[in-house]
Design a protein around this nucleic acid. Structure first.
Lengths: 135, 135
DNA sequence: CGGGATCCGTTACGATACTG
DNA sequence: CAGTATCGTAACGGATCCCG
Protein backbone atom coordinates (compact mmCIF):
# COMPACT_ATOMS: atom_id res chain seq x y z
CA UNK A 1 0.00 0.00 0.00
CA UNK A 2 2.14 2.75 -1.26
CA UNK A 3 0.90 6.29 -1.44
CA UNK A 4 0.10 7.48 -4.91
CA UNK A 5 0.45 11.24 -5.20
CA UNK A 6 -1.04 11.50 -8.67
CA UNK A 7 -4.43 10.19 -7.69
CA UNK A 8 -5.60 12.30 -4.81
CA UNK A 9 -9.09 11.67 -3.48
CA UNK A 10 -11.34 14.71 -3.54
CA UNK A 11 -11.76 16.53 -0.27
CA UNK A 12 -8.46 15.15 0.97
CA UNK A 13 -5.12 16.91 1.24
CA UNK A 14 -3.96 19.98 3.04
CA UNK A 15 -3.58 23.37 1.47
CA UNK A 16 0.15 22.94 1.28
CA UNK A 17 -0.31 19.62 -0.48
CA UNK A 18 -2.45 21.21 -3.13
CA UNK A 19 0.08 23.96 -3.64
CA UNK A 20 3.10 21.72 -3.91
CA UNK A 21 1.56 18.97 -5.99
CA UNK A 22 2.59 19.36 -9.58
CA UNK A 23 4.37 22.59 -8.81
CA UNK A 24 8.16 22.45 -8.94
CA UNK A 25 8.34 25.97 -7.58
CA UNK A 26 6.89 24.89 -4.26
CA UNK A 27 9.42 24.12 -1.56
CA UNK A 28 8.05 20.72 -0.64
CA UNK A 29 7.42 19.46 -4.14
CA UNK A 30 8.60 15.84 -4.32
CA UNK A 31 9.66 16.30 -7.92
CA UNK A 32 12.45 18.55 -6.74
CA UNK A 33 14.23 15.75 -4.93
CA UNK A 34 14.12 13.50 -7.96
CA UNK A 35 15.23 16.34 -10.16
CA UNK A 36 18.15 16.92 -7.83
CA UNK A 37 19.25 13.30 -8.13
CA UNK A 38 18.87 13.18 -11.88
CA UNK A 39 20.56 16.50 -12.54
CA UNK A 40 23.31 15.99 -9.98
CA UNK A 41 26.86 16.35 -11.17
CA UNK A 42 27.47 12.60 -11.53
CA UNK A 43 23.88 11.50 -11.97
CA UNK A 44 23.74 13.08 -15.40
CA UNK A 45 26.91 11.36 -16.54
CA UNK A 46 25.94 7.97 -15.14
CA UNK A 47 22.59 8.06 -16.93
CA UNK A 48 24.32 8.83 -20.20
CA UNK A 49 27.09 6.33 -19.64
CA UNK A 50 24.61 3.50 -19.18
CA UNK A 51 22.77 4.30 -22.40
CA UNK A 52 25.25 2.15 -24.25
CA UNK A 53 24.19 -0.93 -22.31
CA UNK A 54 25.05 -2.81 -19.15
CA UNK A 55 28.27 -1.86 -17.42
CA UNK A 56 30.16 -3.01 -14.38
CA UNK A 57 31.09 -0.71 -11.54
CA UNK A 58 34.71 -0.36 -12.56
CA UNK A 59 33.74 0.16 -16.17
CA UNK A 60 31.52 3.09 -15.28
CA UNK A 61 34.22 4.49 -13.11
CA UNK A 62 36.73 4.31 -15.93
CA UNK A 63 34.29 5.75 -18.44
CA UNK A 64 33.43 8.80 -16.36
CA UNK A 65 36.51 10.89 -15.82
CA UNK A 66 37.15 12.32 -12.39
CA UNK A 67 34.54 10.50 -10.37
CA UNK A 68 35.59 9.08 -7.02
CA UNK A 69 34.54 5.66 -5.74
CA UNK A 70 32.48 7.21 -3.03
CA UNK A 71 30.47 9.51 -5.25
CA UNK A 72 29.92 6.87 -7.89
CA UNK A 73 28.56 4.40 -5.36
CA UNK A 74 26.40 7.09 -3.81
CA UNK A 75 25.07 8.24 -7.16
CA UNK A 76 24.30 4.73 -8.30
CA UNK A 77 22.42 4.05 -5.08
CA UNK A 78 20.19 7.07 -5.38
CA UNK A 79 19.49 6.37 -9.03
CA UNK A 80 18.68 2.79 -8.15
CA UNK A 81 16.39 3.90 -5.34
CA UNK A 82 14.50 6.14 -7.74
CA UNK A 83 14.07 3.25 -10.14
CA UNK A 84 16.27 4.56 -12.93
CA UNK A 85 19.07 2.05 -12.58
CA UNK A 86 18.94 -1.71 -12.11
CA UNK A 87 21.65 -3.37 -10.04
CA UNK A 88 22.42 -7.05 -10.48
CA UNK A 89 24.89 -8.64 -8.10
CA UNK A 90 26.46 -11.99 -8.92
CA UNK A 91 27.45 -13.89 -5.75
CA UNK A 92 30.87 -14.97 -6.92
CA UNK A 93 34.46 -14.24 -6.04
CA UNK A 94 35.67 -11.86 -7.11
CA UNK A 95 32.38 -9.95 -6.93
CA UNK A 96 30.61 -9.14 -10.16
CA UNK A 97 27.98 -6.38 -10.23
CA UNK A 98 26.21 -5.14 -13.29
CA UNK A 99 24.38 -1.84 -13.76
CA UNK A 100 21.85 -1.04 -16.43
CA UNK A 101 19.03 1.36 -17.13
CA UNK A 102 15.46 0.45 -16.29
CA UNK A 103 12.72 1.39 -18.77
CA UNK A 104 12.15 4.51 -16.72
CA UNK A 105 15.87 5.17 -16.75
CA UNK A 106 15.96 4.86 -20.53
CA UNK A 107 13.28 7.49 -20.86
CA UNK A 108 14.85 10.05 -18.60
CA UNK A 109 18.35 9.43 -19.88
CA UNK A 110 17.10 10.35 -23.30
CA UNK A 111 15.99 13.72 -22.03
CA UNK A 112 19.25 14.24 -20.22
CA UNK A 113 21.16 13.27 -23.33
CA UNK A 114 19.15 15.85 -25.23
CA UNK A 115 20.37 18.48 -22.82
CA UNK A 116 24.03 17.57 -23.16
CA UNK A 117 23.70 17.26 -26.92
CA UNK A 118 22.29 20.75 -27.14
CA UNK A 119 25.10 22.15 -25.04
CA UNK A 120 27.78 20.41 -27.06
CA UNK A 121 26.42 21.61 -30.38
CA UNK A 122 25.95 25.13 -29.03
CA UNK A 123 29.24 25.46 -27.21
CA UNK A 124 30.40 28.19 -29.54
CA UNK A 125 27.26 30.20 -28.88
CA UNK A 126 27.83 30.07 -25.15
CA UNK A 127 31.44 31.09 -25.49
CA UNK A 128 30.43 33.96 -27.72
CA UNK A 129 28.03 35.10 -25.01
CA UNK A 130 30.79 34.89 -22.44
CA UNK A 131 33.13 36.96 -24.55
CA UNK A 132 30.42 39.55 -25.08
CA UNK A 133 29.78 39.66 -21.35
CA UNK A 134 33.47 40.15 -20.64
CA UNK A 135 33.60 43.07 -23.07
CA UNK B 1 28.65 29.28 -10.19
CA UNK B 2 32.32 29.55 -10.91
CA UNK B 3 34.09 31.28 -13.76
CA UNK B 4 35.97 29.24 -16.28
CA UNK B 5 39.12 31.21 -16.98
CA UNK B 6 41.23 28.75 -18.92
CA UNK B 7 39.21 28.04 -21.98
CA UNK B 8 40.96 28.25 -25.33
CA UNK B 9 38.49 29.25 -28.08
CA UNK B 10 40.29 27.88 -31.10
CA UNK B 11 43.66 27.47 -32.66
CA UNK B 12 45.77 25.01 -30.78
CA UNK B 13 44.84 21.38 -30.43
CA UNK B 14 46.56 19.46 -27.73
CA UNK B 15 45.86 15.80 -27.22
CA UNK B 16 43.82 16.48 -24.13
CA UNK B 17 41.78 19.09 -25.95
CA UNK B 18 40.91 16.68 -28.70
CA UNK B 19 39.91 14.09 -26.16
CA UNK B 20 37.77 16.40 -24.09
CA UNK B 21 36.10 18.30 -26.89
CA UNK B 22 32.70 16.83 -27.58
CA UNK B 23 33.12 14.28 -24.80
CA UNK B 24 31.21 15.00 -21.62
CA UNK B 25 32.93 12.10 -19.93
CA UNK B 26 36.31 13.82 -20.13
CA UNK B 27 37.33 15.74 -17.05
CA UNK B 28 38.13 19.00 -18.79
CA UNK B 29 35.18 19.06 -21.16
CA UNK B 30 33.82 22.62 -21.21
CA UNK B 31 30.31 21.32 -21.68
CA UNK B 32 30.44 20.01 -18.13
CA UNK B 33 30.69 23.48 -16.65
CA UNK B 34 27.71 24.73 -18.62
CA UNK B 35 25.79 21.62 -17.76
CA UNK B 36 26.55 22.22 -14.11
CA UNK B 37 25.17 25.76 -14.31
CA UNK B 38 22.06 24.76 -16.18
CA UNK B 39 21.26 21.74 -14.04
CA UNK B 40 22.13 23.45 -10.79
CA UNK B 41 19.57 23.43 -8.04
CA UNK B 42 18.24 26.91 -8.76
CA UNK B 43 19.35 27.20 -12.37
CA UNK B 44 16.71 24.71 -13.42
CA UNK B 45 13.94 26.56 -11.64
CA UNK B 46 15.01 29.98 -12.88
CA UNK B 47 15.04 28.80 -16.47
CA UNK B 48 11.54 27.44 -16.09
CA UNK B 49 10.29 30.46 -14.17
CA UNK B 50 11.34 32.81 -16.94
CA UNK B 51 9.55 30.84 -19.63
CA UNK B 52 6.41 32.78 -18.85
CA UNK B 53 8.06 36.04 -19.83
CA UNK B 54 10.07 38.86 -18.32
CA UNK B 55 10.22 39.00 -14.55
CA UNK B 56 11.77 41.28 -12.00
CA UNK B 57 14.21 40.06 -9.37
CA UNK B 58 11.71 40.09 -6.56
CA UNK B 59 9.11 38.41 -8.72
CA UNK B 60 11.42 35.50 -9.48
CA UNK B 61 12.30 35.26 -5.83
CA UNK B 62 8.65 35.07 -4.87
CA UNK B 63 7.88 32.56 -7.60
CA UNK B 64 10.62 30.15 -6.63
CA UNK B 65 10.03 28.89 -3.14
CA UNK B 66 12.98 28.61 -0.79
CA UNK B 67 15.64 30.45 -2.76
CA UNK B 68 17.79 32.95 -0.89
CA UNK B 69 18.77 36.34 -2.25
CA UNK B 70 22.36 35.29 -2.51
CA UNK B 71 21.77 32.14 -4.50
CA UNK B 72 19.26 33.75 -6.80
CA UNK B 73 21.63 36.59 -7.65
CA UNK B 74 24.47 34.13 -8.11
CA UNK B 75 22.39 31.84 -10.32
CA UNK B 76 21.14 34.72 -12.44
CA UNK B 77 24.68 35.92 -12.95
CA UNK B 78 26.01 32.60 -14.15
CA UNK B 79 23.03 32.11 -16.45
CA UNK B 80 23.55 35.60 -17.80
CA UNK B 81 27.25 34.95 -18.32
CA UNK B 82 26.42 31.83 -20.30
CA UNK B 83 24.02 33.79 -22.46
CA UNK B 84 20.82 32.14 -21.32
CA UNK B 85 19.39 35.10 -19.46
CA UNK B 86 19.20 38.77 -20.41
CA UNK B 87 19.45 41.37 -17.68
CA UNK B 88 18.06 44.87 -18.20
CA UNK B 89 18.70 47.43 -15.49
CA UNK B 90 16.70 50.64 -15.40
CA UNK B 91 18.64 53.46 -13.75
CA UNK B 92 15.87 54.73 -11.54
CA UNK B 93 15.08 54.89 -7.88
CA UNK B 94 14.00 52.56 -6.62
CA UNK B 95 16.03 50.25 -8.90
CA UNK B 96 14.16 48.29 -11.51
CA UNK B 97 15.82 45.22 -13.05
CA UNK B 98 14.19 42.88 -15.51
CA UNK B 99 15.22 39.37 -16.40
CA UNK B 100 14.21 37.41 -19.48
CA UNK B 101 15.34 34.45 -21.55
CA UNK B 102 17.57 34.94 -24.56
CA UNK B 103 16.84 32.87 -27.69
CA UNK B 104 19.44 30.38 -26.44
CA UNK B 105 17.80 30.41 -23.06
CA UNK B 106 14.44 29.65 -24.61
CA UNK B 107 15.84 26.59 -26.32
CA UNK B 108 17.54 25.10 -23.32
CA UNK B 109 14.71 25.94 -20.97
CA UNK B 110 12.48 23.87 -23.19
CA UNK B 111 14.69 20.85 -22.68
CA UNK B 112 14.82 21.46 -18.96
CA UNK B 113 11.09 21.84 -18.85
CA UNK B 114 10.82 18.50 -20.62
CA UNK B 115 12.80 16.92 -17.83
CA UNK B 116 10.64 18.31 -15.05
CA UNK B 117 7.48 17.49 -16.96
CA UNK B 118 8.55 13.88 -17.28
CA UNK B 119 9.31 13.67 -13.59
CA UNK B 120 6.00 15.19 -12.59
CA UNK B 121 3.96 12.87 -14.77
CA UNK B 122 5.97 9.87 -13.61
CA UNK B 123 6.07 10.68 -9.93
CA UNK B 124 3.99 7.65 -9.08
CA UNK B 125 6.40 5.38 -10.91
CA UNK B 126 9.35 6.68 -8.96
CA UNK B 127 7.54 6.30 -5.67
CA UNK B 128 6.58 2.77 -6.59
CA UNK B 129 10.26 2.04 -7.22
CA UNK B 130 11.18 3.52 -3.88
CA UNK B 131 8.62 1.43 -2.06
CA UNK B 132 9.89 -1.68 -3.81
CA UNK B 133 13.44 -0.80 -2.86
CA UNK B 134 12.45 -0.28 0.76
CA UNK B 135 10.81 -3.70 0.87
C1' DC C 1 14.33 47.41 -4.85
C1' DG C 2 18.37 44.98 -6.23
C1' DG C 3 22.01 43.13 -4.87
C1' DG C 4 27.17 43.14 -2.61
C1' DA C 5 29.77 41.84 1.70
C1' DT C 6 30.19 39.15 5.46
C1' DC C 7 29.69 35.43 8.72
C1' DC C 8 28.93 30.76 9.58
C1' DG C 9 26.76 26.12 9.59
C1' DT C 10 25.95 22.29 6.43
C1' DT C 11 26.83 19.50 2.83
C1' DA C 12 29.36 17.76 -1.08
C1' DC C 13 33.30 15.96 -2.52
C1' DG C 14 37.88 13.52 -2.89
C1' DA C 15 41.83 10.59 -1.19
C1' DT C 16 43.04 6.98 1.29
C1' DA C 17 42.62 2.80 3.84
C1' DC C 18 40.17 -1.17 4.70
C1' DT C 19 36.75 -5.35 4.15
C1' DG C 20 33.76 -9.20 2.13
C1' DC D 1 36.10 -6.44 -7.73
C1' DA D 2 32.92 -3.72 -5.43
C1' DG D 3 32.19 -1.38 -2.36
C1' DT D 4 32.26 0.84 3.01
C1' DA D 5 34.58 3.73 6.68
C1' DT D 6 36.97 7.62 7.95
C1' DC D 7 38.74 11.97 7.55
C1' DG D 8 39.88 16.61 5.85
C1' DT D 9 38.84 20.22 2.68
C1' DA D 10 36.17 23.15 -0.19
C1' DA D 11 32.11 24.60 -1.97
C1' DC D 12 27.33 25.41 -1.14
C1' DG D 13 23.72 27.71 0.92
C1' DG D 14 21.21 30.75 4.24
C1' DA D 15 20.78 34.90 7.38
C1' DT D 16 21.93 39.40 8.17
C1' DC D 17 23.53 43.97 7.41
C1' DC D 18 24.21 47.57 4.39
C1' DC D 19 24.63 50.66 0.41
C1' DG D 20 23.27 52.78 -4.24
Amino acid sequence: MHSNPSVAPAGEGTLEDKLSRGNVFAVGCPARAILTNVTSRWGVLVLIALRGGTLRYSQIRRKIGGVSEKMLAQTLQSLEADGFVRRVSMPVVPPHVEYSLTPMGEEISQLVQGLTDWIETNLSGVFAARSAAAA
